[in-house]
Every structure is written in structure tokens, then in C-alpha cells.
Design a protein around this nucleic acid. Structure first.
Length: 256
DNA sequence: ATGTCACGTTGAACGTGA
């Protein structure tokens, strides 16, 4: 079983890239973030024609998340991260696929920091920690996949000293990410490749991709029951070089 | 500070978020 996460950065604008990758990689489950489309503009027909069922949560212009499953429709279990009824951003979606609970999340960027957007990011993290604990307590096989907007360590940044004050790398968010992992989650990419420089995002600016000045901010966190089944993990970084690509690449795992 | 995108309000630029 192959499970992937992809910040698509506009599901309609990037649709050819998404469909090309689905055909090439044949994933079983895909978590998408940053649809940047309202509910009614999700390209369900094209995705169904590619052989996938989908559930999604849209929002005009910003955010938006979806879960795709090959030959099946994910069974939705939740479409909000609990803990704040006033949070209207479309950033969380949860569903069962083939006996595994898939949480698709798009954590707030948080810049500029400090400020209200950074506070919102930290609050969102607290809610994720609370909900994540509940998921672990359930003993279900769970994957929390998505754009966490956090580089966990120096190894995940091309030039750490340049990012110290940024909302993606400030000590508070690294600490929050660590608190999630320390609950008992396995960072799939890091567990398979403990010492390797692996990036999942390259900015559009200044030939950043060509210079490999990347960041690792897209993560798949595995509950113990799933971590036991982890066979391989990687990033399809070549997709970032395709025409009209998202600034993120596809990050995936294969389970035994 | 800068740089590059997508999406929206609009009707060719500009604001916003990233």
C-alpha cells in the first residue's frame, strides 16, 4: 500500500501534473493540501477518470484538503480539527481507507512571526497534539500526513541559520512538532533515512530548485500499528521539475 | 528586501497568502 501527501498549490491549476503523477506512481491513497478552490470547483470527474474516489473540503482562494483513494471512496470520519469552533479554515480531513485511518492536514504557515498568524499556528499545533493523543489512544492504525509547515531539525533545511526567525523553523514550532512525535508517532521519512538530506519543498524564487535549496516540511507520521508495516519512504522530487509544478514535491511511503 | 506563483476582484492591474 502506497500512501502519499502533496501540497498541490491549486488543484485546478496543477491538475495535469497531479494526473500525470497518479498515472506514473499509482498510489493507493493521496492526501492533498492547498486545493485553493471552493467545494464546487473540485475536479472530481478528472480524478474519477484517473481511477480514484475522493472526499474533499474546499474553501475559496485558500487552504482546502482532499483524500483520494484508488478504486474506492474514503469513508469520512471527521472534517475539522476539534478544539475551536471559530476556526473556519479548511485544513483538516480524516477518513478510513482500507482499514487505515488517514488524517490529511495543512498546518498554518504562521508568518510573519511573531504575530497573530504565528499565534494561530501554535494554537493549531496544540489542538493537533490533543487530537493526536486521542488517535494514539484508540490503538488504530493511523497516518497523519500533510504539510506541517515545520522543518523538524537542521538536517531538514538547506541553510538553517537563514531560517531561525521564520515561522517554519522557530524554536516554538520545532518544539511543538517534537511534542507530537514524542507522543509515539514515527516520522516515516526520517526513520527510513535517518541521516540523509531530503527536501519536499523548493521555493519558486531564484532557481531554488536548481540549487537544491529546499526544505523538508511535508511529513507522514505513523501510529505504532502502521510504523511496524513501514517498508520504504521517499520523495518524488523530479515532479518538482515538471512544467507548472507545485512548489512542493510528492512525499510517500509504502507499507507491507 | 528580494524573488515567483495562484487566485480573486475585475476588466489590466493589483492585493493577498505563501
Amino acid at each position: 500500500m502506497k500512501v502519499a501527501t502533496y501540497n498541490v498549490n491549486g488543484v485546478n491549476g496543477r491538475l495535469p501534473v497531479l494526473l500525470r503523477w497518479l498515472e506514473e506512481a499509482q498510489p493507493d491513497v493521496v492526501c492533498l493540501q492547498e486545493l485553493k478552490a471552493p467545494v464546487e470547483r473540485f475536479p472530481l470527474l478528472a480524478i474519477e477518470q484517473a481511477g480514484y474516489g475522493a472526499i474533499w473540503q474546499g474553501q475559496k482562494s485558500w487552504n482546502g484538503v482532499a483524500i483520494l483513494a484508488r478504486g474506492a471512496t474514503p469513508i469520512e470520519t471527521r472534517r475539522r480539527l476539534p478544539g475551536d469552533e471559530l476556526d473556519l479554515h479548511s485544513r483538516y480531513l480524516e477518513a478510513a481507507v482500507d482499514g487505515i485511518l488517514i488524517a490529511c492536514l495543512y498546518l498554518p504557515n504562521g508568518n510573519p512571526a511573531p504575530g497573530p498568524k504565528f499565534d494561530y499556528k501554535l494554537e493549531w499545533f496544540e489542538r493537533l497534539i490533543a487530537h493526536g493523543q486521542g488517535l494514539l489512544d484508540s490503538d488504530l492504525p493511523v497516518i497523519m500526513a500533510g504539510d506541517y509547515n515545520v522543518m523538524p531539525t537542521d538536517l531538514d533545511v538547506y541553510k538553517p541559520e537563514r531560517w531561525l526567525g521564520d515561522a517554519l523553523f522557530r524554536p516554538e514550532v520545532r518544539e511543538a512538532y517534537r511534542r507530537v512525535v514524542d507522543q509515539g508517532w514515527t516520522d516515516a521519512l526520517r526513520s527510513i533515512h535517518p541521516d540523509e538530506r531530503i527536501y519536499t519543498f523548493w521555493d519558486y524564487f531564484r532557481n531554488v530548485y536548481g540549487r537544491d535549496a529546499g526544505l523538508r516540511i511535508d511529513h507522514l507520521l505513523l501510529a505504532p500499528a502502521v510504523a511496524k508495516q513501514l517498508a520504504s519512504a521517499g520523495v518524488d522530487r523530479h515532479v518538482r521539475g515538471w512544467d507548472k509544478s507545485s512548489d512542493h514535491a510528492l512525499t510517500w511511503i509504502v507499507l507491507k
